[in-house]
C-alpha cells in the first residue's frame, strides 16, 4: 500500500467532484420544496409526486421502456449470433472486414448514425414512430452486445461443443444446451447494456422519432428548453437511479458469473 498523501487525496476528490458534482446537485435539488430551481426552500418529495401524476411524462416513460426492452432483446439475439459467427466461423475471406464493421458503429458519431437511419426510413417510406426508434436502437446497441458476447466466446472451450455433437446433438442443440447456458452471463450483461443505452439515448431517438412517439430523454430535453423545472430534476434523478442500477447489475453479473464460469470451465477441462 502506498502511504496516504495529500496530493493523491486532492486529485481523487477533484476528479470525482468533477464527475459527480453536477449529478449530485441535480439529485439534491430534486428534493427542493421551492418552485424555483436554484433557491433551496427545504426538503420535499413533492416533485416526485408531480412527475408521477404527469400524463405526458408517464407516456414518454412507457414509450422509452417499450423501446428499450424490445430493441435490447432483438439486439441481444442478433448481436449474439453475430458474435458466434465471427468467433466460430474460422477464417473466411473478409473476416477481418466483417469484425471491423461490427465494431465501427461504436465509434461512429451518433449524429451520423441517426442521420443515416433517418434517410433510410424516409427512403423506404417507413412512418416514424416507435417502430423506427426500435430499429435504430437495435442497430447501434447490437454492436455493444456482440462485443461483450464475443469476448466471452473467445475464451469458451470449443471442445465442449464438440463433445455435445459427439453425444448426438445437432449443432443447434449443442448451442442451446451447452454453449448458451455457459455464456449466459455475457448475454445477460449484453442485454442490460443495450437496455441502458436505449434508455438514455437522445440523439438517435430524436432523429428517428415521429410525433407519435416521444421518449423520456426527448421529453426532458424539450422541457428544459422552456426552463428547468424541479419536476425535471426529479425525473432525471429517477432515470439516474434506473441507469445506475442497470449498469451495476450488468457489471456484477458479468464479473461474478463470468469469473465463476470461467473457473468452472477451466477446472472442468484441465486435469489437475
Amino acid at each position: 500500500m502506498t502511504r496516504f498523501s495529500w496530493f493523491n487525496a486532492t486529485a481523487l476528490t477533484l476528479g470525482f467532484a468533477f464527475l459527480y458534482l453536477p449529478m449530485i446537485i441535480l439529485v439534491v435539488y430534486s428534493f427542493n420544496a421551492s418552485q424555483l430551481v436554484t433557491v433551496w426552500a427545504g426538503f420535499s418529495t413533492r416533485w416526485y409526486g408531480e412527475v408521477l401524476r404527469n400524463e405526458e411524462f408517464l407516456n414518454a416513460a412507457w414509450v422509452t421502456l417499450k423501446v428499450a426492452v424490445i430493441s435490447s432483446s432483438i439486439a441481444t439475439v442478433l448481436g449474439t449470433m453475430a458474435a458466434y459467427v465471427l468467433v466460430r466461423a474460422g477464417r473466411f475471406s473478409g473476416r477481418t472486414l466483417f469484425s471491423g464493421m461490427i465494431y465501427a458503429p461504436l465509434v461512429m458519431p451518433e449524429v451520423i448514425t441517426g442521420l443515416s437511419l433517418l434517410l433510410l426510413f424516409i427512403g423506404i417510406g417507413l412512418d416514424r414512430g416507435v417502430l423506427t426508434i426500435v430499429l435504430a436502437h437495435t442497430t447501434f446497441s447490437m454492436c455493444y452486445v456482440s462485443v461483450v458476447v464475443s469476448s466471452r466466446l473467445i475464451s469458451f472451450d470449443q471442445s465442449l461443443e464438440e463433445a455435445a455433437l459427439d453425444l448426438g446433438c445437432s449443432p443447434f442443440e449443442a448451442f442451446r444446451l451447452v454453449t448458451l447456458p455457459i455464456i449466459a452471463p455475457a448475454v445477460i450483461s449484453g442485454w442490460l447494456l443495450a437496455f441502458t443505452l436505449s434508455l438514455d439515448d437522445l440523439v438517435i431517438a430524436s432523429f428517428t422519432t415521429g410525433p407519435s412517439a416521444t421518449t423520456l430523454p426527448i421529453k426532458i430535453f424539450s422541457a428544459v428548453r422552456l426552463g428547468v423545472s424541479p419536476e425535471i430534476n426529479a425525473l432525471s434523478t429517477i432515470m439516474i437511479a434506473i441507469v445506475t442500477v442497470g449498469v451495476i447489475t450488468a457489471s456484477l453479473v458479468t464479473k461474478q458469473a463470468a469469473v465463476r464460469q470461467a473457473r468452472d470451465e477451466q477446472l472442468a477441462e484441465r486435469p489437475l
Binding site: 448426438g168 444446451l177 447456458p181 464460469q261 477441462e269
Partner: peptide
C-alpha cells in the same frame, strides 16, 4: 457424415465436461 450422425463416441483428452451440468447430467447427456 457429421459427428452427431456417427456411431462413434470419443473421450476427449481435455475431458470437455459440461461445467454447468452435474456429474449425473453429464453422463446422462448422450
Amino acid at each position: 457424415v457429421p459427428p452427431n450422425k456417427r456411431a462413434v463416441n470419443m473421450m476427449f483428452q481435455s475431458y470437455a465436461l459440461f461445467p454447468h451440468l452435474s456429474v449425473w447430467d453429464n453422463i446422462a447427456f448422450g
